[in-house]
Structures are given as C-alpha cells and as structure tokens.
Simulated scan of single mutants.
Amino acid sequence: MSIQEWLLLMSHSTCNSQSQLPPALSSLLVEGVAQNTSSGVYAPGVSFFTIVISLYVDDLLVTGSCVQEIEKVKKELMSLFEMSDLGQVSFFLGIEINQSKGEIILCQRKYLSEILKKFKFDGCKSVRTPMNMKEKLVIEETKEEVDERNYRSLVGCLMYLTTSRPDVLFAVNVLSRFLNNPRRSHLVAAKRVLRYLKGTLDYGVLFKSDFEADLVGFADSDCVGSTQDMKSTSGFCFMLGSNCFSWSSKKEELVAQSTAEAEFIATTTAANQAIWLRKILCDLGFNPRIPTQINVDNQAAIAISKNPVFNLMSKFIFKKANKYFISARSFLYGEY
C-alpha cells in the first residue's frame, strides 16, 4: 500500500493549504487523498485505521490507531526524505509530553522555568490567582512608564504558554491590550501572572482515553469588562469527554448594550468554533454521535437562541451581530 493511499496529514496553522506545503511532500498528496483546505486536513478513504502526521516547518509528529502502520509510515517517509526517527515523543516545540497507560499530560515546565529565570522570578513568592479581578486595567497616560521592550517580551512569552495553560489565558489576553505605552500597573499585573505560575509550575493539560466522548462546549462573557471602550470579553472551551482541548479568550468587536447581548455574541462565537471542530473531527474519522451542546449561563441568551425571532429586545442584537450570527439553536436543540 502506497503512502498516497493512507496518509492523513493534519498541518498546523502555518500550513493551511496544499500550496503552503513543501513541494516534495505536497506531491504525495495529489492522488488518493481527500483534502479539506479550510482545516489543513488531508484524509484517505480508509476506515480501518487512522494515521495522523502533524507538521510544523521541518518537525513531524506521527501518530495513529495502529502501531504497525505508524512504523510503516515512518519507514516510507524516511525512504523518501532525509530524516531521523527520534522514537516516542517526549518534547515538541517547547511542550513536554508525558505518556502513560490511558493518558497523556501536556505541560511546559521547562519553558516556564526559563521564563521565570529570564525575568528573575525563579525565587519569588507565589500567589493563588493569576490576576486581581477587583482591579481594572486601563490606559493611563499620566502614570509611570516602563520599558516597553521588556513588557512586550514578557507578554509574548506568556502568550505561548497559553498553549497548555488555559488558566492564564484571560489574564494574558488583558495584558496584551497594553503592548503600546505600557505603564507600571500593567507590568505589576504581568508580574503577578509570573508569581502565580511559580506556584503552579507542574500544571498542564490531561488527556484520558475516552472511546465514547462527545463534543461539548462552554461559553461565557464578562459583560463590559473593558471600561474604556465598553467592550466585553468572550471566552469558550470545548471538551471531548473529560478532555479540554480547545479554548479561547478574546475581546468582542461589538459594544454590547446588555448582558444578554454580550452572552449571545459569546455563544455565536462558540457555535462557529463548534462547526469548525466538528468538521475537523469528521475529517479525522471521528464523526460526532449527537449534536454539539454549548452551555451558557444566561437565560436570555438561551431564549434568543431557542427562538431567534425579531422583537423589540432582540432586533438590535441580530442587526449588530449579523457578521457573527449563527443560531445556537441547532446545537442546543439537536438540529445540526
């Protein structure tokens, strides 16, 4: 069996279409492989096993459902390209991968230790939370300035850390809003994140084997969390069984005039992500058994999603959120 017949390639965000793949590797995917360019997934029409190759520049991760086929993939790739087999993965792009029976733990302990050492926080006292929720960070033109390059470097390091640390994602999202002309209050808040990370050095993401896992989402909004532009921050996470694998925290582009509107925008953002994730899962051969449920803690947003009709309260929400709007009804009530 040739590589064209069973190769399933899932590329990273730096390689989202076949035109962006290395020419030699792209030539292997021309025939016998179904391509989904929107997700960067290349899948063969084979159902009895799955092979996944994750590509980042010149680094490859090979995994799948059959050990023999994985070895066959590696041997054939090594016959076509000059490469080395480093064995079972334990470290990839700054992420430590600890494998044991039935579970995998992803963490960035080494990378985090280097960050703490770089900013001289390796001996600091830890705190229990990454940020003080009672403190609202704003642009302060009259306050004391700090080294802009140092602040950007710190926030940039923290951004990559959110790959395996969703618990600091919201805090890093807020800090990233002040990369231009940061003030002392912003630097103090960034240092608090480092102090929190110092006490949670071993934290990471745990993945357990779950053969009957369903895709479930959670969405929320802080409702006018940014007092200067009156915009809210939306957040969501998705789980397969007990495994959290997708998360996001981002300021909404629209100014919400009510809690229901802010929550509804967060829900539609999560619904868009759910559609994309379902396509990815289908391309990988894991067809979701049931509609994806998105959990929201706002009754008004749920009511609007359940019955998306125009009325005095909702017509402005639909008009402003038209660019985002995908009714969550299909996910909440089983019509997807």
Score class of each variant (00 low, 15 high):
11 S>R: 12
14 T>D: 15
16 N>G: 10
16 N>R: 14
19 S>I: 10
19 S>P: 02
29 L>F: 08
35 Q>G: 07
37 T>P: 14
43 A>P: 04
44 P>T: 06
47 S>N: 14
48 F>P: 04
51 I>E: 04
52 V>F: 13
54 S>T: 13
54 S>M: 15
57 V>D: 06
57 V>E: 08
64 G>C: 07
64 G>N: 05
74 K>E: 12
92 F>S: 02
97 I>K: 03
99 Q>H: 10
100 S>V: 09
103 E>I: 02
108 Q>S: 06
109 R>S: 12
111 Y>V: 01
115 I>D: 08
118 K>W: 02
120 K>I: 11
121 F>C: 09
125 K>G: 09
126 S>V: 05
132 N>P: 05
134 K>R: 10
135 E>N: 10
135 E>Q: 14
137 L>N: 07
139 I>C: 14
146 V>Y: 06
147 D>L: 06
148 E>R: 11
155 V>G: 00
155 V>S: 02
160 Y>R: 05
163 T>H: 14
167 D>K: 03
168 V>S: 06
169 L>A: 15
171 A>G: 12
178 F>Y: 11
178 F>V: 02
180 N>P: 07
181 N>V: 13
182 P>I: 08
190 A>V: 07
192 R>K: 11
197 L>V: 04
202 D>G: 03
204 G>V: 00
206 L>D: 00
208 K>I: 10
210 D>E: 15
211 F>M: 11
212 E>K: 13
217 G>T: 07
217 G>P: 04
222 D>K: 01
224 V>H: 06
226 S>W: 05
227 T>Q: 11
231 K>S: 05
231 K>F: 06
233 T>S: 12
235 G>L: 02
238 F>Y: 12
244 C>G: 06
245 F>M: 02
258 S>W: 02
263 E>P: 01
263 E>A: 02
270 A>F: 02
271 A>G: 08
273 Q>A: 09
273 Q>I: 02
276 W>S: 09
278 R>N: 07
282 C>Q: 09
283 D>S: 07
283 D>E: 10
287 N>K: 10
288 P>R: 00
298 N>R: 04
299 Q>G: 00
303 A>C: 09
306 K>V: 01
311 N>H: 13
312 L>M: 13
315 K>E: 15
315 K>L: 14
319 K>M: 12
322 N>K: 15
323 K>C: 11
330 S>G: 15
330 S>L: 09
335 E>D: 15
